[in-house]
Simulated assay, not measured.
Amino acid sequence: MHETVRALRTIRGRWAELLLAIEEPPADHWPPRQLAHTMRESDEQLVVEDRSPLVLREHPAPINLGALDAGRGVERLVFDLADTLAAAVQRTEQGDPRAWLSADPSAPDSRRAAGSRVHGLHWACVWIEGRVQDEDTAPERELDGALAPPPFEVLPLHLLHEARRTARIAEARVLRALGLDQRDTPLPEPCPWCEGELTLHSAPDGPPAVTCSGGRACSAPVPLDSRERARVWEWDDLPELIAALGVDLSAVAAA
């Protein structure tokens, strides 16, 4: 359950970045895109709740087709998972705002045909998280004091496993599209201090870092790794390395 919730929250937290990436050229792996974005003069904010789902609209002239494909694929995974869970455990009336309404292609109105998908990926992730955590599964007291059946049943184990599998696949697609997945990428430039090989290390659960193969022989003003085999530029040290390599980070951020 905890892995599923974490994956869903990662998807939600990175969704605005993915939507922005659709409208930008594919980002190079170097310099790290997170560091370049912190240099932007204008703070780009995107209210994703106001954006129609990608699967329900035509995207005008996408620049990054890989990001667009990833976004559409993630939406389908998450929306289809919500449909599956709702069919299995939802017992509330459709007028209940907590209810997930599955798509109905036969409906004449496009918004009604889309069901709850029209509210976008954020709402779908929040709704699935509620099912995974067995929210609203206790009987509810009505105005006359009587107990009414709960809006949702407890999620059975096989669907809990399915939710975990789907959420992790969707999370991986988002992170991969943004270049934030686990990867080690050799840089084309050698270390400015010792000519050793530089490698960029990225991971979904932390900022990127760069290591130099020169180890103790390298005179770079950064510490060695835990095995004392490589110099390491952590997040706060990366601007110094980028400057030493002659990269104009402000120009990258403005691109």
Rank of each mutant, 00 (worst) to 15 (best):
A138K: 14
P108Q: 06
S102D: 12
S116R: 00
R76Q: 14
V126K: 02
C125E: 04
V132N: 06
L81T: 02
R131D: 00
A113K: 09
L85N: 04
S106K: 12
D80Y: 10
A138N: 10
P139N: 00
G73M: 06
D96S: 09
A114T: 08
A70T: 08
L101A: 08
G71V: 06
Q133P: 03
G120L: 08
P108F: 05
P108V: 04
L85T: 08
R91H: 06
D83I: 01
W123T: 13
Q133Y: 01
D83R: 03
S110A: 14
V89R: 07
D109E: 15
R117N: 03
A113V: 13
V126D: 11
A86L: 05
E135D: 13
G115T: 05
A88D: 11
E93W: 11
L101N: 03
W100K: 02
D83K: 00
A107E: 13
A138Y: 12
V74S: 00
G95D: 14
A107P: 07
T92L: 10
L81R: 00
L121C: 01
W127R: 03
H122E: 11
A99S: 11
L77Q: 14
A103P: 09
P105G: 07
A86C: 07
V118H: 12
Q94Y: 15
G130V: 02
V74Y: 01
L77W: 09
A124T: 00
A99H: 11
Q94C: 08
L81W: 01
I128P: 01
V132Y: 08
E75M: 08
A82W: 02
R117L: 04
G71M: 08
Q90Y: 05
A114L: 08
R76P: 00
D104I: 01
V126W: 06
G95S: 14
T84H: 08
A82Q: 02
G120P: 06
S110Y: 13
L101S: 07
V132M: 09
A114H: 03
E135W: 12
R112Y: 13
T92R: 07
L121V: 05
P97E: 01
S106H: 09
R72K: 15
E135F: 12
D83V: 05
E93Y: 13
L121A: 01
S116P: 01
R117I: 03
A103E: 13
R91W: 00
R117D: 03
L77M: 15
A113D: 10
L77G: 06
V89Q: 02
H122K: 10
R111K: 13
V126C: 04
A99L: 05
A113M: 13
Q133C: 09
V78Y: 07
V118D: 11
G95Y: 14
H119T: 10
Q133F: 01
A86Y: 00
T92C: 15
G71D: 09
R72Y: 09
T84R: 13
A113T: 11
A99E: 01
D136G: 04
R91A: 04
A113F: 10
V132C: 13
D104T: 12
S116H: 02
R131S: 00
P97W: 02
L68S: 12
P108T: 06
A70M: 05
A103I: 14
T92Q: 07
T137P: 07
P108S: 06
A70W: 01
R91E: 00
W123V: 12
L77C: 07
D136M: 09
C125M: 08
T137R: 12
A86E: 05
S110P: 15
